[in-house]
């Protein structure tokens, strides 16, 4: 059991999402960056899709009632474990009664805390992800609150000593000063006025403060259509760049509405959900239009790297467990 002493700004239980429910109006929710969730889970010996905590800007303070194994992947945090610096991107044993304080996330917006065994709250419609917008999922469909108790799904893996190895954050996490989001043109891209087409990929945008898990709002040059489009509602996805009448585009994210009637200017490539997930309010971003073949190349490279990291982590973890036994 884990006791939430402080919830942080927006910490929620997430897995790989609630798939197959879009036809009834429910988007997948799930981790904003599924790859970081997978890697954090692998580091503690969990299956890729075990439920973990997604933390935003200011992390939680947690007390573990018994010894556990945890891993943090994502934004750089001023984190401490039992008062000492908390190493990240690696499995870290936690002793019974210890307090883990994730504190402020300095670079990047989100990080994932996986706990060996996975969070064991009851799944809703096949998933343990909390859909904050729909108010649905475990934890009554809401973010963590101080006083919440998080059970573990199983005892999970243990290690006596912290390994010295870790996973390299690149290419999974990039805290560079400028975020580049790669997009495929959408069917209404040609409806943008010529200077708005140029502005879309030529001018910088900023992440607006009212961004959340539903969508990342971009502020920048107003984008204008050649003439108004009368559209009827059709499906949109995690990554659709919608253009509402305000002229300020919205990149839909994990808790996107399943349908929308705004022009579909472009679509974020799947590989860059990891960049979107780290967008902090005020961050400068650039939008780059690419060809489908380039998107596919990026997807394959990412998928291959993910397979390699899974394999590497499993071997390292097995070796660390063996070293534990010999000592």
């Amino acid at each position: 059991m884990i006791r939430v002493l402080r919830a942080g700004l927006l910490s929620s239980v997430q897995d790989l999402g609630r798939l197959g429910q879009a036809a009834i109006g429910l988007s997948a929710a799930g981790a904003m960056d599924p790859n970081l969730l997978r890697i954090a889970n692998w580091l503690v010996g969990n299956a890729a899709g075990a439920a973990a905590l997604e933390c935003t800007l200011l992390g939680p303070r947690l007390q573990f009632d018994r010894a556990s194994l945890v891993a943090w992947c994502g934004a750089d945090a001023d984190a401490t474990l039992a008062g000492a610096a908390f190493p990240t991107w690696r499995p870290v044993p936690v002793s019974a009664g210890a307090v883990l304080d994730i504190a402020a996330l300095r670079r990047g917006a989100r990080g994932y805390l996986a706990i060996a065994g996975g969070i064991g709250l009851a799944p809703v419609l096949g998933s343990r992800s909390v859909d904050l917008n729909a108010g649905l999922g475990p934890c009554a469909g809401r973010a963590l609150r101080a006083g919440d108790l998080l059970p573990l799904a199983s005892p999970g893996r243990s290690l006596r000593r912290a390994p010295t190895w870790s996973v390299a954050p690149a290419p999974w996490f990039d805290a560079g000063p400028l975020r580049v989001l790669r997009l495929l043109p959408g069917s209404h891209y040609p409806a943008l006025a010529a200077n708005s087409q140029a502005a879309l990929s030529g001018e910088p945008f900023r992440v607006a403060t009212d961004s959340n898990r539903v969508g990342i709002r971009l502020s920048g040059p107003a984008l204008i259509l050649r003439e108004p489009l009368e559209l009827i509602s059709a499906a949109v996805t995690h990554g659709t760049l919608q253009l509402p009448p305000s002229g300020q585009p919205i990149l839909l994210a994990a808790e996107h509405p399943t349908t929308g009637g705004y022009p579909r200017i472009a679509h974020l490539i799947d590989a860059d959900r990891s960049v979107l997930a780290q967008c902090r309010p005020g961050d400068p971003v650039r939008l780059q239009l690419i060809a489908p073949e380039q998107a596919e190349q990026a997807r394959r490279r990412r998928a291959e790297a993910l397979t390699r990291i899974e394999d590497l982590v499993q071997r390292r973890l097995a070796a660390s467990a063996q070293a534990d036994e010999h000592n």
Binding site: G186, T240, H267, I269, P292, A295
Partner: peptide
């Protein structure tokens, strides 16, 4: 194409 993993 709605991005690289969906069709409309």
């Amino acid at each position: 194409e709605l991005g690289d993993s969906a069709l409309l």
